[in-house]
Design a protein around this nucleic acid. Structure first.
Lengths: 355, 355
DNA sequence: CTGTTAGCGCCTTCAG
DNA sequence: CTGAAGGCGCTAACAG
């Protein structure tokens, strides 16, 4: 039962040198002889010494804790789990460690976990904000000089960096694809209107409709919960329209899934009688609906980019807010399930600076 | 640009009291007057003070860092993402925060992240070990008095607590179900034999075969990768047996999925011509194969239990190693997709001590 | 109820 | 190349 932790002085005494020497060994300083270094490291192993980062960080001026805070709104969704994995890959290889907290869309929880993380001295924060997060919520963080990267869900107005999917471009490509197949009445189905993602996607929808010379009737935009059930509701409403749509781009794949359900309930075969395209934000559906044409995102890639951006800012001390737009791919699948990438959007990510 | 962090002395000066008073306020001591407490907290807010846990923890003797380390072998798998969510729920409500690291089945990474976490002074560790983890790997941790809970994948021989699914009971129930349907030749398909989970599940298989008076030919146990492809391989091998099986329990749902693929390739309809049951470790398949009878586990529940057990040990200072077996449910689905819980195993968890 | 005095474990001068 | 002080932010005794 080794209750007392072994410290630098312990190993210094054991070796017969001073604590400073041990400290120098710890940070790999060249100011110490090979012989002493070897003895010190050997004794460290023997006594089971563990470096105390808390103490080190306390002495060192800056907040070089080596901890990255990661806050996601729903870890149950594979999308965000993959995002966390992407972050972890970069964070680990940089020798950092990540605090990961799940908010379940609760802003209270979000506030709490961020506070706790700050108390622990995180040196940066990556966050996919809970619904209802205000740009002002980031104010105290940036005021404290804490690097923050917002992922997936943009927070326009906040002076923080962000990494998001190409929501506008993705929907644009989807609509263009349907138009090229001859569809004239194309609906946009699903999503909560009070989210940045919804705004961006509907913006892409409007632009694409216009660009293809199609009537952009706002009645064709039908909001709903971004879930399978929401999709059922949205399509049922869409089919009641006077001039029925013949195809739809959906907020996400869960909605698209529900839309297919709803179509079948009306004896319409999705893909044949009615074209359905969805953003695959809910990855579960990727495998569940293999026949669905999707706008495919790369959550791990977003996570990696976000982490890289954050590390860059941490190392730079302080950088201006930057926005990275992660490209998406339109994956066209015909009804028999064969897959081919139709319009692979440019791999090079467009990048814009400022906020 | 507030570069200098505000400390207790800053706010003490601002209020006109001593730092100790501020410290007492911080820990909610009743030894301070309401008036001063109010002024102190108010000034803290005004100056944007953030509590420095590192410093506090340094002063306090024990390692009350309030950090729980969570290490999983594959966060990409929804099962483990859900596990992490379950842990997070408990950890957050206890005011702790979790380090979450993904090892991707790499023992090297695992060693690294555990080392890093220890340097940060975690007060406990929950781990779903990477394949190839030796019981001895936990030796230094328990020697240091660090509470450790192994989840999902047991590590027999290690003197640590664990929370695992009822692997034996689950397979037992699955086999019993098939036997009750009249099957006599039942195979066990999939899984790596060098894992504890495989051992436990095949043990359940053997016991169930014996209990139902069935021939337990070891040739009926066919190992393979615990993946969809592995399932295809396993069933193809099984169908080559002299006395063909008429049903199978599978290591997990991914294998079961592959088994169905393989059966269809042989023009056998799964569920009709051949009964398939799988442990649903890979949750993706839960929705993807709605018609499959599964042995259903509760990853979030395992996470919650593991966290509760760990917190208990942390608070108790030191507790004996304890093993919790989380019950599973046999979910029987007929071919048209209707669902009903057939044999709901007892909710009360069996518990055994020691180990 | 409040102030004073020591450190926690480590790193950083600054001299040997 | 090594040793001796001092202090990071906080808390734990003690005194007032």
């Amino acid at each position: 039962m080794t209750e007392t932790r072994v410290t630098v002085v312990d190993i210094a005494r054991a070796v017969g040198v001073s604590k400073s020497t041990v400290s120098l060994v710890l940070q790999g300083s060249p100011l110490v002889s090979e012989a002493t270094r070897a003895k010190v490291t050997s004794v460290m192993r023997d006594l089971g010494y563990v470096y105390n980062r808390g103490a080190a960080n306390l002495r060192q001026s800056g907040s070089k804790s080596g901890i990255i805070g990661v806050v996601v709104n729903d870890l149950t969704n594979s999308f965000f789990a993959e995002l966390a994995v992407g972050v972890d890959v970069i964070v680990q290889s940089a020798g950092f460690v990540q605090f990961l907290a799940n908010t379940s869309e609760s802003i209270d929880r979000q506030r709490e976990v961020i506070a706790t993380m700050r108390e622990h001295g995180i040196s940066g924060l990556i966050i996919s904000p809970a619904r209802g997060t205000e740009p002002s919520d980031f104010r105290p963080l940036v005021a404290a000089g804490l690097p923050v990267v917002v992922a997936v869900r943009n927070s326009p107005g906040a002076k923080v960096s962000s990494v998001i999917s190409d929501n506008e471009g993705g929907i644009f490509a989807g609509v263009a694809h349907l138009a090229s197949l001859g569809h004239r009445r194309i609906a946009f189905l699903g999503g909560f209107p009070d989210t940045a993602v919804f705004q961006e996607r509907t913006a892409g929808y409007r632009k694409a409709m216009q660009a293809n010379g199609l009537d952009c009737d706002d009645g064709l935009i039908i909001a709903s919960a971004p879930s399978r059930l929401g999709g059922v509701e949205a399509i049922s409403q869409a089919l009641k329209l006077g001039d029925r749509p013949t195809g739809a781009v959906c907020f996400n794949d869960a909605v698209a899934f529900g839309v297919c359900d709803g179509l079948r309930a009306q004896h319409l075969e999705p893909g044949v009688g009615f074209a359905v395209i969805g953003f695959d934000d809910v990855i579960e559906a990727r495998t569940a609906v293999p026949a669905l044409t999707t706008i495919s995102v790369d959550p791990q890639g977003i996570g990696r980019r976000a982490a890289q951006l954050l590390l860059k800012q941490i190392n730079a001390g302080k950088a201006e807010a930057e926005t990275l737009i992660s490209s998406v791919r339109l994956v066209v699948r015909d009804t028999c399930g064969a897959t081919r990438a139709a319009a692979e959007m440019d791999n090079v990510n467009r990048r814009q600076t400022g906020s």
